[in-house]
């Protein structure tokens, strides 16, 4: 099968490690994809005001591009993009009045009725590849890695776009388990890292991120798997600040789940782009002998 791929802004620069590792995994799994031509920023957040339709134009335009490209499904990697595109799509599918207004406003574009399916990499692998096939493709199992998958908010909430059960998801754990990791489940795996409050209230965001990391560590995690560049910033790149501010916090290696999948599937390490991860994460993988194993 062939699928349309929507990258979003961050994946072309600061989260290149998410994109390059994910695409290498798709290649390894035999999935054909084509990047969406002329994609634009989705707007990062879905508008929560009932009377604000203008911010829907950007994500809806992306969905129209997918239709023009000739695909019925678009694959996303960034959790924020997933949420914004999926919610815009739900609205276009279900709200006749707003759909009419938006289509009228975009009179230079063909009408859109929400026919495209928006998926995230995780549910795509679950539904289209399956854990058995994923497992069968593992060359370097992540044996012995005590891994805490962290969902964050936007893959799970609100319920109508959740890729699994909002309050008790398993998809992420099952995926990482198929790659051979030892799963560390912890309650805050579905809680918020502080999100955009890194700009408005950076200290509040630091506190909730620190709570997530300390809880995962207390539950026995030695590394964390992520799906979102904003989570990676709050939980990973701000760890230095946490270590300085909070007594008892220990550095926790962070990876995009696709990087760990790429390691497990044995793809060329240049696709991991590990230089964009924290030093502690790079050291951790070296310590597990997972990098050497692949390159030999």
């Amino acid at each position: 099968m062939k699928i349309s791929y929507y990258p979003g802004c961050t994946l072309k620069t600061k989260a290149k490690n998410l994109e390059s590792s994910a695409l290498a995994c798709l290649d390894a799994l035999g999935v054909e994809y084509e990047e969406l031509p002329r994609w634009n920023c989705c707007g990062a957040v879905y508008s929560l005001s009932d009377d604000d339709l203008i911010h829907l134009i950007a994500p809806v335009r992306d969905l129209i591009r997918v239709q023009e490209q000739g695909f019925d499904t678009v694959l996303t990697l960034c959790s924020m993009c997933y949420n914004t595109l999926a919610r815009a799509n739900e609205l276009m599918k279900n709200d006749e009045v707003k759909r009419g207004t938006i289509n009228d406003f975009m009179d230079e574009e063909p009408d859109y009725k929400g026919e495209i399916k928006v998926v995230h990499f995780l549910d795509f692998i679950r539904d289209e590849i399956g854990w058995d096939k994923l497992k069968a493709n593992v060359k370097n199992p992540l044996n012995g890695m005590k891994l805490a998958p962290y969902y964050g908010c936007t893959l799970l909430r609100p319920g109508d776009v959740s890729i699994d059960k909002s309050n008790s998801p398993v998809v992420f754990e099952e995926c990482m388990e198929a790659l051979g990791a030892e799963i560390v489940k912890f309650p805050k795996a579905i809680e918020c890292c502080g999100s955009y409050q890194v700009l408005g209230n950076p200290e509040a965001a630091l506190k909730v991120s620190n709570d997530i990391i300390t809880e995962a560590t207390a539950f026995g995690a030695e590394a964390m798997a992520l799906t979102c560049p904003l989570c990676d910033y709050n939980l990973g790149h701000r760890q230095e600040e946490m270590l300085k501010k909070y007594e008892g916090t220990k550095a926790l290696p962070m990876f995009y789940f696709t990087q760990l999948m790429a390691v497990a599937l044995g793809v060329d390490p240049e696709n991991y782009n590990l230089d964009l991860n924290q030093a502690v994460s790079q050291e951790f993988l070296k310590g597990k002998n997972l990098l050497e194993k692949v390159s030999t």
Partner: peptide, 15 residues
């Protein structure tokens, strides 16, 4: 230089 685009776009949208 450090903040991901998704942080800035969402922060500006909300605040």
């Amino acid at each position: 230089a450090k903040l991901p685009q998704v942080a800035m776009v969402s922060g500006f949208r909300k605040l």
